[in-house]
Design a binder for these strands. Structure first.
Length: 551
RNA sequence: GACUCGUUGGUGAAGUGGUUCAACACGCCGCCCUCUCAAGGCGGUAUUCACGGGUUCGAAACCCGUACGAGUUACCA
């Protein structure tokens, strides 16, 4: 009996060969420099920020080169799979406007290199494994878990490298007859790759981030097909898929670096050319004194849904992630505010290889504030409204009550050279504008009066102001002149400079008077421009708010 | 334990032998700015690049050790 018989026994129904697939999935017609990248998440119901960053890089590299960005669903681990995961993934991609060129979604395949779901590619993997068995580079392994565990324990005890290699790879020495007999007897098995590598020999490999790396050859007979569902392991699926889908650049986390030798050997066994690799530093988080991998269980910000719920503009998240990837991105973006991030010349070499970047929420918040501040009122209206419809009943109701009024509020000190930066996220908007709504204002009674806190004095200031001075029709200069007149009339200092030079000579200043008005109007001592607020509220509502203090 | 990658300020980092006595951004602090806050302006924030040794006229940059951190070491990706 020969390897051929063994291969036939294991895969009797596989008739297509590798050559067939080479024809079905021909080399892509790429122009010089065009890149093919992919986002290949496993459907766990969770889009990790690190994976998403890789997707952003994938997208930028593909799109900026005129190439292809596709989505591949890596669902080979059926035990971890979550039903709606792929919808979430698609939702995230679309939300960030990173529509893949090729994908498979809800039964529809877009692209000529599918299926794009690994569990549907079984035949292709099997054909490849069949080939490997025929040429003697793969074999069935009947070792049981207990045996493997025992073996590893012994290896550890003897300070040997752990794993299935060399003399520990017992099943590689089984004769075809023995293997066939085992299979016919119904023994469960996995398929392992037969490594020809020598761990003591080194080879170099060029990672686009780190440059030339000298690595030990792989000598592990890694599992390429699992026993229960006959699906491939990640390692094997990566090699087969990225070859037949004609991926040119693989972007993945640096946790994959140590499996590179195995992947390279797999490519070599087929005589295929490996793609270029970009192993990105992990995204870490500061936890007390230590930095650790951002974890999906402990850290809500590990999930992309966090940023969607909080209402960060997509542009802000992308900028934060791009800045971690290439720190000159920010500078470039300020210099080219109107350009899309796709026009940025992303350079893998410029990625830090310092083994992990802290994701800085302060920085994100700052970027986000800037992004929101630069939106015009209509854009902010649209984006915050569509966010509210999904995530905030409160904001949604406020907007729907009177969209034009809402627009006026968010337009205060907006659409100018140096706009205000009040809103960090869409979620933070209600907290900044609620006092402009009477029904919310009525419910709140905690006034933050500052220097002037005597109720009689406050009542007097407010009453005098509204009855004697305030007019809706005043322009800003007139308005402020009147505030000054009021200030002087009540014995306070209207000139800030004079006041600062000699504060003891006065009861207080125009700033104190303004603060009283501001607080009475909003309960807060810090708000946007007072004049704008007054105008928006109008005399009648102002009067009502003031009246509380002198009735 | 073994293997691999790394180590520049509070954070992200620029910088690969000599205008870097370490850019830029965030954060923090201070001052200024005819109403607050925000913004803005100005200034401060690493006598030094984990540590020790070496190479060199010259090192954060090159070499060697040490320490520390991270990743991998699965029929998970």
């Amino acid at each position: 009996m020969t390897n051929h018989d063994l291969a036939e026994l294991i895969f009797p129904n596989i008739t297509k060969t590798i050559e067939d697939y080479e024809k079905i999935y021909p080399e892509r017609n790429l122009k010089e420099g065009e890149k093919v990248t992919r986002f290949a998440p496993s459907p766990t119901g969770f889009v990790h920020i690190g994976n998403f960053q890789a997707a952003v890089i994938d997208y930028v590299m593909a799109k900026s080169s005129g190439g292809i960005f596709y989505l591949r669903n890596e669902d080979t681990d059926k035990s971890r799979e979550v039903e709606t995961a792929i919808e979430k993934i698609m939702q995230v991609l679309r939300f960030y406007d990173m529509e893949p060129d090729e994908y498979e979604y809800k039964g529809k395949i877009v692209g000529n290199y599918g299926p794009y779901i690994q569990s549907e590619r079984k035949e292709i993997y099997h054909a490849c494994i069949k080939y490997l068995i025929e040429i003697g580079r793969a074999y069935p392994c009947f070792c049981e878990k207990e045996h493997l565990d025992q073996m590893r324990e012994n290896q550890e005890k003897n300070k040997m490298r752990t794993g299935y290699y060399g003399r520990y790879a017992t099943c590689r020495n089984l004769s075809v007859e023995e293997a066939v007999a085992n299979i016919k007897a119904g023994k469960p098995y996995v398929i392992r790759f037969r490594s020809l590598g020598n761990f003591d020999d080194r080879f170099w490999f060029d990672d686009l981030v780190r440059g030339k790396l000298y690595l030990n050859q792989n000598d592990q007979d890694i599992v390429i097909m699992k026993s229960d569902n006959l699906l491939p392991t990640y390692h094997f699926a990566h090699v087969v898929d990225d070859h037949f889908m004609r991926t040119t650049h693989v972007v993945r986390g640096e946790e994959w670096l140590s499996s590179v030798p195995g992947h390279i050997e797999l490519f070599e066994a087929f005589g295929w050319k490996p793609p270029k690799y970009i192993h990105t530093p992990l995204i870490l988080k500061q936890d007390g004194d230590i930095k650790r991998k951002i974890s999906k269980r402990k850290d809500p910000e590990a999930s992309m849904s966090y940023y969607m719920e909080k209402g960060y503009p997509t542009e802000a998240v992308i900028e934060a992630l791009m800045t971690i990837a290439n720190s000159n991105y920010e500078e470039w973006h300020t210099a080219n505010p109107d350009k899309s991030f796709l026009e940025f010349d992303f350079q893998p070499k410029k990625m830090s290889s310092s083994g992990g970047a802290l994701f800085d929420l302060d920085k994100l918040n700052n970027i986000s504030k800037n992004v929101i501040s630069k939106m015009n009122k209509d854009t902010l209206y649209e984006l915050s409204y569509s966010w509210a419809k999904q995530y905030s009943e409160l904001l949604k109701n406020l907007i729907e009550m009177d969209p034009e009024y809402y627009k006026k509020i968010i337009n205060i000190e907006r659409e100018q050279k140096k706009p205000r930066k009040d809103y960090e996220t869409y979620a933070s908007i209600p907290n900044e504008i609620w006092y402009m709504y009477d029904h919310l204002f009525e419910e709140y009674h905690d006034y933050d009066f500052q220097k002037i806190s005597n109720p009689n004095e406050i009542a007097m200031i407010l009453k005098t102001y509204i009855e004697k001075y305030y007019q809706d029709s005043d322009d800003k200069d007139t308005w402020f002149d009147k505030i000054k007149q009021l200030t002087t009339e009540l014995g306070y200092c209207a000139d800030m400079k004079a006041y600062k030079e000699n504060p003891d000579a006065y009861k207080g200043s125009v700033a104190d008077i303004s603060t009283v008005i501001r607080v009475a109007l909003t309960t807060r001592s810090m708000t946007p421009d007072l004049y704008e607020l007054l105008k928006l509220l109008g005399k009648e509502r102002i009067q009502k708010r003031f009246a509380k203090f002198y009735q």
